[in-house]
Write a protein that binds this DNA or RNA. Structure first.
Lengths: 236, 236
DNA sequence: TTTTTAGTTGAACGATCGACTAAATTTACC
DNA sequence: GGTAAATTTAGTCGATCGTTCAACTAAAAA
């Protein structure tokens, strides 16, 4: 299986020269199509022929570039994982530098968790929107270890860092309560990002799915106050 | 398509006598197997042969009793929907009779939304546990209208009743804020009920998945306080 | 008893699935 | 320009998919 490596790391001892022949964007087009389809219909709801058709290539090319269907799914996840994890880690570092009372600093951490995700979904282009939705879709199928474990592998550490930041900020809270609160928070985000159409439907058109920015602020208000219900000091 | 009616309501004008020949519980066993498998692997991840095997019947029987695969999926949803909706409506009626300050009454409504769901998942037997998980799984696939619309058909009204109860309790709140808060709340529940194993994993074994009762109280604390962040009066 | 009918069986249907291969084509490098 | 590696094409493989059918069983109705 050959991954679509954009930078090309040398595998052997001496392989100094770039030896990419063609492959202008075929691999990327396959990944884009797979990302889009998987994020909507799930792994089993998509066939390699669906992906190949949407990418405008032959079915065999999916096997040539990425190996099996499972490998392709993993490649879709891996493509954007590092960039996303780095973005979240950066946001957390900045949030930890925010000064103010407990409530202000808590809200900064909360906002720093949503913002990188929502930003990429809204302003990162169609690819990122699909990727975020795929993340949510996978997170909601925890029974299937094979699908969720690659995700956990990427994101577990940075998520633990957020929990640790909240724990350090709230020594007065029970450690378990902090974890519960963050778990509730994470559950909210995961479900909401699974799609954007439900908002419009449920409220009879009052909320627009494109108004995710406004939703982020409501969410910070809600979660920030929610922590006070679990014993966090400071005002909501 | 013939539904598996346990009590047997007369369809025509005069059909007094039970006319079940054999088929003691075949249809129910098929529904049980489908419910269990769909709730774990999703619609496309399960074949009719998987279902028939787990039910211990022939594949053709799934088609005989329930028609197509989509029809079978719909029958699984329909089987328990009415009972569940009725239970939620009852819980809401009782919650609206709770006296006390705004915070107490708000918490009563919140608790009345989680309790019927968690109770059935924990103490309703394996069938209900699978059904609740299937609800969450479907709710997390909003892109696929064909799957979610039968669910909405059953549950939209009673959910709207909960929102209305909160709105009536909080005239000081912006109407949109009430909807946002309940939407956040619903998103939490949906994701959490998609499974019970994630709790154990994420916290390194600190939370047991069987401790859903404790979680419900944390959730009431968190959501009850969260509403104050959206402008609700009363203490958390 | 005879007829009718709901239920079940075992096997097949055409279609599509993921996976794979050999040949043809294109490109980079000498 | 020639050569070898990289890429693409077209097609096939066995397995499995949802669906269907005719034959069979047993209970209810006549």
């Amino acid at each position: 299986m050959k991954l679509a490596e954009t930078t090309g790391g040398p595998e052997g001892a001496a392989a100094p020269k770039l030896d990419r022949r063609r492959a202008p964007d075929t691999a990327a087009r396959i990944l884009d199509a797979a990302e889009s389809l998987f994020s909507i219909r799930g792994y089993h709801g998509v066939s390699l022929r669906d992906i190949a058709t949407q990418a405008g290539v032959q079915v065999a090319l999916t096997h040539y570039h990425f190996g099996s269907k499972e490998d392709l799914f993993g490649a879709v996840i891996d493509r954007r994982a590092d960039a996303h994890v780095a973005g979240m880690a950066d946001a957390l570092v900045q949030a930890r530098q925010v000064a103010g009372d407990q409530s202000t600093r808590r809200r900064a951490i909360i906002r720093a968790f949503i913002t990188p995700i929502v930003d990429r979904s809204m302003r990162g282009g169609a690819g990122w929107k699909n990727y975020i939705r795929l993340m949510a879709l996978v997170a909601n199928m925890p029974q299937q270890e094979a699908f969720i474990s690659p995700f956990r592998q990427h994101f577990d550490d940075v998520i633990a860092a957020y929990v640790e930041a909240l724990r350090a900020l709230h020594p007065e809270m029970d450690e378990g309560d902090v974890q519960w609160g963050f778990f509730f928070f994470q559950a909210m985000i995961t479900h909401i990002l699974a799609e954007s159409g439900m908002l419009d439907r449920q409220s009879g058109g009052r909320f627009s799915s494109s108004e995710l920015d406004a939703m982020v602020e409501r969410m910070v208000d809600f979660v920030g106050a929610g922590f006070t219900g679990l014993g966090a000091g400071g005002l909501a």
